[in-house]
Design a protein around this nucleic acid. Structure first.
Lengths: 145, 145
DNA sequence: CGGGTCGGTTTAACTTTGAAACCGACTACC
DNA sequence: GGTAGTCGGTTTCAAAGTTAAACCGACCCG
């Protein structure tokens, strides 16, 4: 049988990040938006749903709550390694949107430090090192590095 | 601003394939399941939703209806180039599921003709040629090619 | 004391989904 | 000719999910 097992793999992924808003929440955290109120404002999502989706992501180990102050105790949301590992999927989805719904000029992701456009694999082909989310930036395809 | 434009790119993608079932439908067509009844049975989706999702995918140019008989006219659903171009995203999502929800032993995608495991980019790193969906197969990571 | 921020929870309308029944156009069998 | 079955849907209606808006406790600031 062809492409048999990936049934369950994609379904497993969809079960975790396939609900409405979830991928966009992960993307926002990836982009550096970590606080509840910032996420809520940026996405325009209802607060109860944001609350619920974040709880689900924390449960699944994709996101973790990190205190940034006491009194009152406040936490921000950060990606775990498992969450950061979604970057390849996010980039693939983004590139598809770029290719087929291009917003003239198209956006490319480049290695923040050397300007080389990235492949789907978040490794810089010039530097041969893994590129962490914070090291990725976007620029127009026509811009110089 | 960092990672600014990809907001709209990911959102554009999600607008097309982000509804429930849609990605799984694309994956099934990718896998060679082309008929309405086969899709319905394989996914266990309600028929009205499958009908609606397929119509949406056709509208978006991801999938096309191809007649395979007249009297009564019956069509099957096939990926357009735009739809086939989702393969990188599907593979990325699949690999994440594999890595974090591994079903012992994990599945890897390999180039059907040479057995080399594929990267996210659907190009065989050994053969240096683009690998079309039909040329991809799955096998256990422990199997030999 | 009065107001504002932060990170939520609750509530009640509204929208989407899902299961099941139904349907038209055929084909195949008897 | 009649009956059953397949295919690809559409219709219906209850259940589930989404939304906006109100509310809340714990603080801070003036």
């Amino acid at each position: 049988m062809v492409l048999d097992k990936e049934t369950s793999s994609i379904e497993a992924t969809i079960a975790v990040v396939g609900e409405r808003w979830t991928i966009l929440i992960v993307r926002d955290i990836f982009r550096g938006i970590h606080r509840f109120s910032q996420l809520q404002e940026d996405l325009g999502i209802a607060k109860n749903l944001l609350s619920e989706r974040l709880a689900h992501l924390v449960e699944e180990g994709v996101v973790e709550r990190v205190p940034y102050q006491d009194r009152p105790l406040r936490c921000e949301y950060r990606l775990t390694p498992k969450g950061a590992d979604l970057s390849a999927s996010l980039i693939a989805l983004m590139k598809w949107g770029d290719r087929w719904y291009a917003d003239d000029p198209p956006t490319v992701l480049v290695h923040r430090t050397c300007g080389t456009p990235l492949d789907l694999d978040p490794t810089c082909p010039r530097c041969s090192v893994a590129v962490t989310p914070g090291q990725i930036r976007s620029q127009n395809a026509t811009e110089e590095s």
